[in-house]
Design a protein around this nucleic acid. Structure first.
Length: 220
DNA sequence: TGCCAGGCCGGGT
DNA sequence: ACCCGGCATGGC
C-alpha cells in the first residue's frame, strides 16, 4: 500500500467511527492534573476502577499537584486502592509530582509550555511513565499532537491488517503520525473512538465482529 | 470461576 | 534484543 492509500484508509476508518459513535468528549477528567493522574491510574486497569480511585482523591481534597505531592504515600495508596496495583501506582504518582516540582518548580503551566519533545523525554525518564502514559499526558493534558497507542489500537488495527503482529509502540504511532496531519483534535477523537469500538466490539476473546462498523475494512 | 481491563519495570536469558 | 513474572482491584 502506498502512503497515500494508507492515509486514505486511516481517514476513512476515522470517518466511519466518527459517524457511528459521534463525539467522545475525551479525556474524561475535569482538569489537566486530573488527566495526568488518570493516565497513571488506568495502566492495565478498567476505567470504572479508576473513577472510584479519583473520587476518593477528590473527596479527600488531594487532587491537586501540591496536595498530592505532600500527601503521605500510605494515605495515597489507600485512597487509590480500587484502581489496583495501588502501592506501585502511589509511587508512580509521587514520581510524577516530584518531576513537575523538580524540573518545572511545581508549575503545570511551565511544564505544558515546554518544548514537546523535551517534555516527552522528561516524562519517559520518570519511573512508571512509559510511552502510552507520556503520550496521554502530552495529548490530553498538554494539548500536543502525539498519537496515543494502546492495546485496543494494536488489536483493532491488527485485525484489519494495518499493523504487523509484533509491532512495537513507536511503529504503530508512526503509522498514524506519519500518515495523518499533526492535529490535536483529530488525535484526541481518533484515539477515543478506538477505545470505544475496542471496548464494545473488539474484545480479546471475541475474534470476529459481526455488524461492526469497520466490517468493510476487514482484510482479504 | 476464571478472565480481563486505556502498562510498566526489573531481572533473566 | 526479547521474554517473563510481578503488581491488585472490580466487573462480568
Amino acid at each position: 500500500m502506498s502512503d497515500r492509500q494508507i492515509s486514505t484508509q486511516l481517514t476513512a476508518i476515522y470517518k466511519v467511527l466518527s459517524r457511528a459513535y459521534g463525539p467522545q468528549h475525551w479525556w474524561p477528567g475535569d482538569t489537566p492534573f486530573e488527566v495526568m493522574v488518570g493516565a497513571v491510574l488506568t495502566q492495565n486497569t478498567a476505567w470504572t476502577n479508576v473513577e472510584k480511585a479519583i473520587a476518593n482523591l477528590k473527596k479527600s481534597r488531594l487532587l491537586s499537584l501540591s496536595r498530592l505531592h505532600g500527601a503521605p504515600g500510605r494515605q495515597l495508596a489507600f485512597l487509590i486502592r480500587p484502581s489496583g496495583y495501588f502501592n506501585i501506582k502511589a509511587q508512580r504518582l509521587k514520581s510524577l509530582t516530584a518531576f513537575v516540582a523538580g524540573r518545572y518548580r511545581g508549575s503545570l503551566k511551565r511544564m505544558f509550555a515546554d518544548d514537546p519533545r523535551t517534555l516527552r523525554e522528561g516524562l519517559l525518564g520518570v519511573n512508571g511513565i512509559g510511552p502510552e502514559t507520556a503520550d496521554s499526558i502530552l495529548l490530553y493534558a498538554a494539548n500536543r499532537p502525539y498519537f496515543v497507542v494502546d492495546a485496543y489500537t494494536k488489536r483493532v488495527f491488527g485485525r484489519h491488517g494495518l499493523i504487523a503482529d509484533g509491532a512495537v509502540y513507536h511503529e504503530v504511532q508512526q503509522l498514524f503520525m506519519g500518515n495523518l496531519p499533526a492535529d490535536v483534535r483529530l488525535y484526541n477523537e481518533y484515539h477515543a473512538l478506538i477505545v470505544r469500538i475496542g471496548k464494545e466490539r473488539c474484545k480479546k476473546n471475541r475474534p470476529l465482529c459481526a455488524g461492526c462498523p469497520l466490517e468493510k475494512f476487514l482484510p482479504g
